[in-house]
């Protein structure tokens, strides 16, 4: 069984839950940006939640199946069609040999997850099938899909069911991204910190799997200091350090960048804190120009939000009888 790529869409990659353990070498986790949607797509087709799926951004691909399978599309509202006939998102549907899966225009969100029963069976690299395009690692030949690619699919149990809107998880507008201040937060003035949370930011066009840039807020004022040896001359420079996932760096104090699943693992810009783990999925569903706010939380609130996200996944499992 295989999936043939007729048209790859804008940038469609093979993703799973990622590749931990190599960040100290600069190889990031990778994996689906919206892991909630990725897990649910797999649940719907009877796969393990961490099986490899296709992640499509803004525009869907066109695919042809060489054998019968069950398919589900979750995440952003990118309407699936089988041989031109619309299917529901967040719902398992069957395909036959020779059927073509295509997509209508994106109505909301940014990324769709296309799961096929059996899972996309590209080779495992360093423990994962996820694509890390910058490092040409994993996925299908280390890159986004191209027309003419053929992806092997594993043997799979066929799932069923659908997930109602109330059980899904998508960002609001403006998106509220909860963040724990820290790291180099002390480098900015108290007033700059207040404005950072008060401002409504907009997602910049430079928003991809490495990171999301935000613009439109007030530039940060730094606490004056003599720059330490080796840091560089700009007040936003630090001696090159590790970058956590979700960390918010502000080069030059102007436009915050939130690092995501294909993060650069380190560099010389100060960070004001991190978006909490529970809200990383939501960033993956933001389109350029959409509004967003950063909301300050404590560690206890971050852990409670993490538990809420896990409970939301548990509700989906219960709903699907898994």
């Amino acid at each position: 069984m295989a999936v043939k790529v007729i048209n790859p869409g804008l940038s469609t990659t093979v993703q799973d839950l990622g590749r931990p353990g190599y960040y100290h070498l600069g190889i990031p986790l990778s994996g689906g940006m919206d892991r909630f949607a990725l897990r649910v797509a797999n649940m719907l087709v009877g796969n393990d939640e961490g099986a490899a799926v296709l992640e499509a951004v803004f525009m869907g691909p066109e695919l042809e199946f060489t054998a019968a399978a069950t398919v589900a599309v979750t995440g952003g509202d990118l309407p699936p069609k089988v041989n031109g006939e619309e299917r529901a998102g967040w719902e398992a549907f069957p395909v036959k040999a020779g059927d073509r899966l295509s997509f209508g225009f994106l109505k909301s969100g940014a990324r769709a997850y296309i799961a096929v029963s059996g899972g996309i069976d590209v080779p495992v690299k360093l423990g994962s099938r996820a694509t890390y395009t910058l490092g040409a690692l994993g996925g299908h030949e280390g890159r986004a899909l191209k027309a003419g690619d053929e992806l092997p699919v594993g043997e799979g149990v066929q799932g069923k069911g659908s997930v109602p809107e109330a059980l899904r998880r998508m960002p609001g507008s403006p998106a509220e991204l909860r963040m724990l201040p820290g790291l180099y937060w002390h480098r900015i003035t108290a007033e700059a910190g207040q404005r950072f949370f008060a401002d409504t930011w907009k997602v910049a066009p430079e928003a991809d799997r490495i990171g999301y840039r935000f613009k439109g807020g007030t530039a940060l004022d730094f606490v004056p200091r003599e720059q330490p040896f080796g840091a560089g001359s700009n007040p936003s420079n630090i001696v090159d350090a590790c970058y956590p996932y979700g960390s918010i760096q502000v080069p030059g104090g102007t436009e915050p960048i939130v690092l995501h699943r294909d993060a650069v693992s380190g560099g010389g810009y100060m960070m004001v804190g991190c978006v909490i783990s529970a809200d990383m999925d939501l960033i993956g569903q933001l389109q350029p120009h959409s509004p967003a706010r950063f909301v300050e939380v404590t560690m206890d609130q971050a852990l409670a939000a993490r538990a809420d996200r896990q409970a939301a996944l548990a509700r989906v499992r219960a709903h699907l009888g898994l």
Binding site: G182, A241, P244, V275, S277
Partner: peptide, 11 residues
């Protein structure tokens, strides 16, 4: 310093 709920950063 904590980097969110999944990292500890040590300078």
């Amino acid at each position: 310093s904590f980097g969110g709920d999944e990292h500890i950063f040590g300078e």
